[in-house]
Protein backbone atom coordinates (compact mmCIF):
# COMPACT_ATOMS: atom_id res chain seq x y z
CA UNK A 1 0.00 0.00 0.00
CA UNK A 2 1.22 3.49 -0.60
CA UNK A 3 0.12 6.94 0.36
CA UNK A 4 -1.34 8.48 -2.76
CA UNK A 5 -1.99 12.16 -3.32
CA UNK A 6 -1.92 13.15 0.31
CA UNK A 7 1.56 12.05 1.20
CA UNK A 8 3.44 14.81 -0.65
CA UNK A 9 1.48 17.34 1.39
CA UNK A 10 2.94 16.15 4.65
CA UNK A 11 6.32 17.85 4.40
CA UNK A 12 4.65 20.98 3.11
CA UNK A 13 2.24 21.03 6.01
CA UNK A 14 5.02 20.49 8.50
CA UNK A 15 7.14 23.17 6.89
CA UNK A 16 4.20 25.51 7.17
CA UNK A 17 3.78 24.58 10.79
CA UNK A 18 7.42 25.20 11.57
CA UNK A 19 7.34 28.48 9.70
CA UNK A 20 4.31 29.63 11.57
CA UNK A 21 6.00 28.73 14.83
CA UNK A 22 8.95 30.91 13.99
CA UNK A 23 6.67 33.84 13.43
CA UNK A 24 8.37 36.51 15.49
CA UNK A 25 6.70 37.06 18.82
CA UNK A 26 4.85 40.34 18.42
CA UNK A 27 7.06 42.16 20.84
CA UNK A 28 5.62 44.72 23.15
CA UNK A 29 6.87 48.20 22.59
CA UNK A 30 6.65 50.65 25.40
CA UNK A 31 3.21 50.59 26.95
CA UNK A 32 2.64 54.28 26.30
CA UNK A 33 3.43 53.94 22.59
CA UNK A 34 1.11 50.98 22.34
CA UNK A 35 -1.73 52.88 23.99
CA UNK A 36 -1.22 55.86 21.70
CA UNK A 37 -1.04 53.63 18.68
CA UNK A 38 -4.27 51.83 19.43
CA UNK A 39 -5.87 55.03 20.71
CA UNK A 40 -7.23 53.20 23.71
CA UNK A 41 -6.25 52.38 27.27
CA UNK A 42 -7.06 48.80 28.28
CA UNK A 43 -7.99 48.74 31.90
CA UNK A 44 -8.60 45.62 34.02
CA UNK A 45 -11.49 46.13 36.42
CA UNK A 46 -13.60 43.93 38.69
CA UNK A 47 -16.61 42.00 37.49
CA UNK A 48 -18.76 44.23 39.66
CA UNK A 49 -18.03 45.97 42.95
CA UNK A 50 -20.39 48.90 43.32
CA UNK A 51 -18.53 52.14 44.05
CA UNK A 52 -15.25 50.83 42.66
CA UNK A 53 -15.98 49.29 39.31
CA UNK A 54 -19.37 48.10 38.16
CA UNK A 55 -21.20 48.17 34.86
CA UNK A 56 -24.79 49.36 34.76
CA UNK A 57 -27.43 47.63 32.64
CA UNK A 58 -26.27 49.68 29.63
CA UNK A 59 -22.73 48.37 30.03
CA UNK A 60 -21.40 51.77 31.16
CA UNK A 61 -18.70 51.42 33.77
CA UNK A 62 -18.39 53.64 36.79
CA UNK A 63 -16.76 53.72 40.18
CA UNK A 64 -13.59 54.91 41.83
CA UNK A 65 -11.31 52.43 40.08
CA UNK A 66 -12.97 53.21 36.77
CA UNK A 67 -12.44 56.93 37.27
CA UNK A 68 -8.74 56.31 37.80
CA UNK A 69 -8.67 54.64 34.38
CA UNK A 70 -10.57 57.58 32.90
CA UNK A 71 -8.17 60.08 34.44
CA UNK A 72 -5.19 58.24 32.99
CA UNK A 73 -6.84 58.00 29.58
CA UNK A 74 -7.51 61.74 29.74
CA UNK A 75 -3.90 62.49 30.64
CA UNK A 76 -2.46 60.19 27.99
CA UNK A 77 -4.97 60.34 25.14
CA UNK A 78 -6.80 63.56 25.94
CA UNK A 79 -10.09 61.65 26.02
CA UNK A 80 -11.42 60.02 29.17
CA UNK A 81 -13.74 57.80 27.14
CA UNK A 82 -11.01 56.04 25.22
CA UNK A 83 -10.85 53.18 27.70
CA UNK A 84 -11.64 49.54 27.16
CA UNK A 85 -12.68 47.84 30.38
CA UNK A 86 -11.83 44.19 30.83
CA UNK A 87 -13.75 42.66 33.74
CA UNK A 88 -11.50 40.21 35.60
CA UNK A 89 -12.20 37.93 38.51
CA UNK A 90 -9.81 37.56 41.41
CA UNK A 91 -7.93 34.67 39.82
CA UNK A 92 -7.63 36.16 36.37
CA UNK A 93 -6.45 39.60 37.33
CA UNK A 94 -2.71 39.07 37.78
CA UNK A 95 -2.23 36.82 34.78
CA UNK A 96 -4.19 39.28 32.65
CA UNK A 97 -1.79 42.03 33.64
CA UNK A 98 1.30 39.83 33.40
CA UNK A 99 0.39 38.71 29.92
CA UNK A 100 -0.26 42.21 28.66
CA UNK A 101 -3.96 41.65 28.17
CA UNK A 102 -4.49 44.87 30.11
CA UNK A 103 -2.24 47.94 30.43
CA UNK A 104 -3.35 48.65 33.93
CA UNK A 105 -5.13 46.77 36.68
CA UNK A 106 -7.44 49.09 38.56
CA UNK A 107 -9.44 46.63 40.52
CA UNK A 108 -9.53 47.17 44.30
CA UNK A 109 -6.34 45.15 44.68
CA UNK A 110 -4.47 45.06 47.99
CA UNK A 111 -0.82 46.00 47.99
CA UNK A 112 1.18 43.21 49.65
CA UNK A 113 4.79 42.18 49.62
CA UNK A 114 4.19 38.85 47.89
CA UNK A 115 2.25 40.45 45.10
CA UNK A 116 4.67 43.33 44.67
CA UNK A 117 7.78 41.18 44.79
CA UNK A 118 6.92 37.88 43.15
CA UNK A 119 4.21 38.38 40.56
CA UNK A 120 6.10 40.62 38.15
CA UNK A 121 4.01 43.63 39.04
CA UNK A 122 4.40 47.08 40.48
CA UNK A 123 1.82 48.69 42.72
CA UNK A 124 1.68 52.36 41.80
CA UNK A 125 -0.06 54.37 44.50
CA UNK A 126 -2.85 53.89 46.98
CA UNK A 127 -6.25 55.14 45.85
CA UNK A 128 -8.23 53.78 48.78
CA UNK A 129 -7.17 52.76 52.30
CA UNK A 130 -9.43 49.94 53.36
CA UNK A 131 -9.51 47.38 56.14
CA UNK A 132 -11.24 44.07 56.62
CA UNK A 133 -14.31 43.96 58.81
CA UNK A 134 -17.28 41.77 59.70
CA UNK A 135 -20.97 42.00 58.95
CA UNK A 136 -23.23 40.13 61.37
CA UNK A 137 -26.97 39.81 61.92
CA UNK A 138 -28.15 42.15 64.66
CA UNK A 139 -30.09 39.42 66.38
CA UNK A 140 -26.87 37.64 67.40
CA UNK A 141 -26.19 40.67 69.65
CA UNK A 142 -22.46 40.75 68.99
CA UNK A 143 -20.35 43.72 69.98
CA UNK A 144 -16.94 42.53 68.87
CA UNK A 145 -15.29 40.17 66.43
CA UNK A 146 -13.69 38.45 69.42
CA UNK A 147 -17.08 37.00 70.29
CA UNK A 148 -17.15 34.98 67.07
CA UNK A 149 -15.83 31.84 68.77
CA UNK A 150 -16.77 28.69 66.79
CA UNK A 151 -18.74 30.83 64.37
CA UNK A 152 -19.00 30.02 60.68
CA UNK A 153 -17.81 32.91 58.56
CA UNK A 154 -18.64 33.27 54.87
CA UNK A 155 -15.80 34.56 52.71
CA UNK A 156 -15.05 34.85 49.01
CA UNK A 157 -11.93 33.12 47.77
CA UNK A 158 -9.24 34.76 45.71
CA UNK A 159 -8.60 37.66 48.02
CA UNK A 160 -6.28 38.61 50.86
CA UNK A 161 -9.35 38.21 53.06
CA UNK A 162 -8.97 34.49 53.74
CA UNK A 163 -5.44 34.89 55.02
CA UNK A 164 -6.29 37.90 57.23
CA UNK A 165 -9.19 36.01 58.70
CA UNK A 166 -7.07 33.06 59.67
CA UNK A 167 -4.23 35.29 60.96
CA UNK A 168 -6.49 37.41 63.12
CA UNK A 169 -8.31 34.62 64.87
CA UNK A 170 -5.13 32.64 65.29
CA UNK A 171 -3.57 35.59 67.07
CA UNK A 172 -6.64 35.83 69.25
CA UNK A 173 -6.57 32.11 69.97
CA UNK A 174 -10.12 31.73 68.69
CA UNK A 175 -11.33 28.89 66.46
CA UNK A 176 -13.62 29.76 63.58
CA UNK A 177 -14.88 27.88 60.53
CA UNK A 178 -14.47 29.68 57.21
CA UNK A 179 -16.93 28.78 54.45
CA UNK A 180 -15.13 29.71 51.26
CA UNK A 181 -16.97 30.52 48.03
CA UNK A 182 -15.59 30.90 44.57
CA UNK A 183 -17.94 33.69 43.58
CA UNK A 184 -19.09 36.85 45.28
CA UNK A 185 -22.76 36.16 44.47
CA UNK A 186 -22.62 32.72 46.02
CA UNK A 187 -20.97 33.98 49.21
CA UNK A 188 -23.54 36.75 49.64
CA UNK A 189 -26.41 34.40 48.98
CA UNK A 190 -25.13 31.94 51.58
CA UNK A 191 -24.68 34.63 54.22
CA UNK A 192 -28.12 36.15 53.82
CA UNK A 193 -29.76 32.75 53.80
CA UNK A 194 -28.32 32.27 57.29
CA UNK A 195 -25.63 29.74 56.41
CA UNK A 196 -22.98 31.74 58.30
CA UNK A 197 -23.01 33.86 61.41
CA UNK A 198 -20.73 36.48 59.88
CA UNK A 199 -19.56 37.75 56.51
CA UNK A 200 -16.11 39.19 56.06
CA UNK A 201 -14.53 41.38 53.41
CA UNK A 202 -13.16 44.91 53.04
CA UNK A 203 -15.12 47.45 55.07
CA UNK A 204 -16.00 49.49 51.99
CA UNK A 205 -17.68 46.48 50.44
CA UNK A 206 -19.42 45.60 53.70
CA UNK A 207 -21.11 49.01 53.69
CA UNK A 208 -22.33 48.34 50.18
CA UNK A 209 -23.44 44.80 50.97
CA UNK A 210 -25.35 45.95 54.02
CA UNK A 211 -27.12 48.79 52.24
CA UNK A 212 -27.76 47.17 48.86
CA UNK A 213 -27.75 43.42 49.27
CA UNK A 214 -29.35 42.86 52.66
CA UNK A 215 -33.10 42.11 52.61
CA UNK A 216 -33.43 44.57 55.52
CA UNK A 217 -30.26 46.63 56.12
CA UNK A 218 -31.27 47.38 59.70
CA UNK A 219 -31.13 43.70 60.62
CA UNK A 220 -27.35 43.73 60.10
CA UNK A 221 -24.47 45.55 61.73
CA UNK A 222 -20.81 46.01 60.84
CA UNK A 223 -18.59 45.13 63.80
CA UNK A 224 -16.19 47.88 64.95
CA UNK A 225 -12.94 45.93 64.43
CA UNK A 226 -10.92 46.27 61.27
CA UNK A 227 -8.60 43.30 61.30
CA UNK A 228 -6.22 44.24 58.50
CA UNK A 229 -4.66 46.99 56.44
CA UNK A 230 -5.90 46.95 52.88
CA UNK A 231 -4.25 49.62 50.80
CA UNK A 232 -5.91 49.37 47.38
CA UNK A 233 -4.43 50.78 44.25
CA UNK A 234 -3.73 50.35 40.54
CA UNK A 235 -1.07 47.90 39.42
CA UNK A 236 1.17 47.88 36.34
CA UNK A 237 3.43 45.31 34.78
CA UNK A 238 7.15 45.35 35.57
CA UNK A 239 9.64 46.36 32.96
CA UNK A 240 8.20 49.68 31.85
CA UNK A 241 9.34 52.37 34.26
CA UNK A 242 7.93 55.23 32.17
CA UNK A 243 4.43 53.80 32.26
CA UNK A 244 4.80 53.06 35.97
CA UNK A 245 5.69 56.74 36.55
CA UNK A 246 2.77 58.01 34.47
CA UNK A 247 0.15 56.00 36.39
CA UNK A 248 1.68 56.96 39.71
CA UNK A 249 1.83 60.67 38.94
CA UNK A 250 -1.65 60.95 37.46
CA UNK A 251 -2.97 59.65 40.79
CA UNK A 252 -0.70 62.05 42.70
CA UNK A 253 -1.96 64.89 40.52
CA UNK A 254 -5.56 64.10 41.48
CA UNK A 255 -4.64 64.16 45.16
CA UNK A 256 -2.59 67.31 44.77
CA UNK A 257 -5.48 68.97 42.95
CA UNK A 258 -7.67 68.37 45.97
CA UNK A 259 -5.02 69.74 48.27
CA UNK A 260 -4.83 72.98 46.27
CA UNK A 261 -8.57 73.21 45.87
CA UNK A 262 -8.58 72.64 42.12
CA UNK A 263 -11.92 71.14 41.06
CA UNK A 264 -13.54 70.13 37.83
CA UNK A 265 -15.58 73.33 37.98
CA UNK A 266 -12.94 75.92 38.85
CA UNK A 267 -10.15 74.46 36.75
CA UNK A 268 -10.06 77.20 34.11
CA UNK A 269 -10.04 79.99 36.72
CA UNK A 270 -7.29 78.23 38.64
CA UNK A 271 -5.17 77.97 35.48
CA UNK A 272 -5.24 81.73 35.23
CA UNK A 273 -4.51 82.21 38.93
CA UNK A 274 -1.24 83.21 40.52
CA UNK A 275 -0.29 80.29 42.81
CA UNK A 276 2.93 78.87 41.31
CA UNK A 277 2.26 75.35 42.63
CA UNK A 278 -1.12 75.29 40.89
CA UNK A 279 0.39 76.80 37.75
CA UNK A 280 2.94 74.04 37.73
CA UNK A 281 0.32 71.34 38.31
CA UNK A 282 -1.95 72.55 35.56
CA UNK A 283 0.83 73.17 33.10
CA UNK A 284 0.32 76.88 32.71
CA UNK A 285 3.76 77.74 34.10
CA UNK A 286 6.21 74.96 33.32
CA UNK A 287 5.91 71.80 31.31
CA UNK A 288 5.90 68.91 33.80
CA UNK A 289 4.38 66.66 31.15
CA UNK A 290 7.58 66.61 29.15
CA UNK A 291 9.33 64.68 31.91
CA UNK A 292 6.67 61.97 31.79
CA UNK A 293 6.47 61.86 28.03
CA UNK A 294 3.04 63.45 28.13
CA UNK A 295 1.61 66.71 26.92
CA UNK A 296 1.85 69.87 28.94
CA UNK A 297 -1.70 69.84 30.23
CA UNK A 298 -1.75 66.20 31.33
CA UNK A 299 -2.82 66.86 34.92
CA UNK A 300 -5.34 69.51 33.99
CA UNK A 301 -6.95 67.08 31.57
CA UNK A 302 -7.17 64.37 34.20
CA UNK A 303 -8.83 66.71 36.69
CA UNK A 304 -11.10 68.08 33.99
CA UNK A 305 -12.26 64.57 33.18
CA UNK A 306 -12.97 63.14 36.62
CA UNK A 307 -12.43 65.93 39.16
CA UNK A 308 -9.90 65.91 41.97
CA UNK A 309 -9.51 62.97 44.35
CA UNK A 310 -12.03 64.37 46.81
CA UNK A 311 -14.68 64.82 44.12
CA UNK A 312 -13.98 61.38 42.78
CA UNK A 313 -14.34 59.90 46.27
CA UNK A 314 -17.57 61.68 47.12
CA UNK A 315 -19.18 60.83 43.79
CA UNK A 316 -18.37 57.12 43.86
CA UNK A 317 -18.23 55.97 47.45
CA UNK A 318 -18.71 59.04 49.66
CA UNK A 319 -21.63 61.18 50.67
CA UNK A 320 -22.93 61.70 47.12
CA UNK A 321 -23.13 57.92 46.51
CA UNK A 322 -25.40 55.20 47.83
CA UNK A 323 -22.49 53.80 49.87
CA UNK A 324 -22.07 56.93 51.99
CA UNK A 325 -18.64 55.94 53.28
CA UNK A 326 -16.86 58.47 55.51
CA UNK A 327 -13.51 59.82 54.28
CA UNK A 328 -11.73 58.39 57.34
CA UNK A 329 -8.20 57.30 56.40
CA UNK A 330 -8.83 58.53 52.88
CA UNK A 331 -8.96 62.19 53.86
CA UNK A 332 -5.99 64.36 52.90
CA UNK A 333 -2.95 64.22 55.15
CA UNK A 334 -3.64 67.71 56.44
CA UNK A 335 -7.17 66.75 57.35
CA UNK A 336 -6.37 63.73 59.48
CA UNK A 337 -6.14 61.16 56.71
CA UNK A 338 -3.36 59.35 54.84
CA UNK A 339 -3.72 60.79 51.34
CA UNK A 340 -0.41 62.46 50.65
CA UNK A 341 1.03 63.15 47.24
CA UNK A 342 4.70 63.90 46.70
CA UNK A 343 5.11 67.37 45.27
CA UNK A 344 4.71 67.88 41.55
CA UNK A 345 7.73 69.95 40.71
Amino acid sequence: MNLPNVAPNWPAAIALLVLSLQFPAAHAGKTLDQIRQRGQLVCGVSTGVIGFSAADSQGRWNGLDVDVCRAIAAAVLNDANKVKYVPLNAQQRFTALQSGEVDLLSRNTTWTLTRDASLGLHFTAVTYYDGQGFLVPKKLKLGSARQLKNAEICVQSGTTTEKNLSDYFKAQGIKIKPVVFEKFEASIKAFFSGRCQAYTTDASALAFIRSKEAPKPDDYVVLPELISKEPLGPVVRRGDDEWFAIVKWVIFALIEAEEYGVTQANLEQMKAGSDPAIQRLLGSAEDSGKLLGLEREWAARAVKAVGNYGELFQRNVGSASPLKLPRGLNALWNKGGLMYAPPIR
Binding site: H27, G29, Q91, S99, E101
Partner: peptide
Protein backbone atom coordinates in the same frame (compact mmCIF):
# COMPACT_ATOMS: atom_id res chain seq x y z
CA UNK B 1 -11.15 25.82 31.94
CA UNK B 2 -8.79 27.20 34.60
CA UNK B 3 -5.92 26.45 32.25
CA UNK B 4 -7.64 28.31 29.42
CA UNK B 5 -8.65 31.21 31.56
CA UNK B 6 -5.58 31.81 33.71
CA UNK B 7 -2.71 30.17 31.94
CA UNK B 8 -3.08 30.67 28.19
CA UNK B 9 -2.16 34.35 28.54
CA UNK B 10 1.25 33.51 29.99
CA UNK B 11 2.01 30.91 27.36
CA UNK B 12 1.25 33.28 24.51
CA UNK B 13 3.86 35.70 23.21
CA UNK B 14 3.70 39.22 24.56
CA UNK B 15 1.40 41.72 22.99
CA UNK B 16 -0.67 38.84 21.76
CA UNK B 17 -3.88 38.53 23.63
CA UNK B 18 -6.92 36.40 23.00
CA UNK B 19 -10.34 37.22 24.28
CA UNK B 20 -11.26 35.16 27.35
Amino acid sequence: LFLASFLFPIILPQGFSIDV
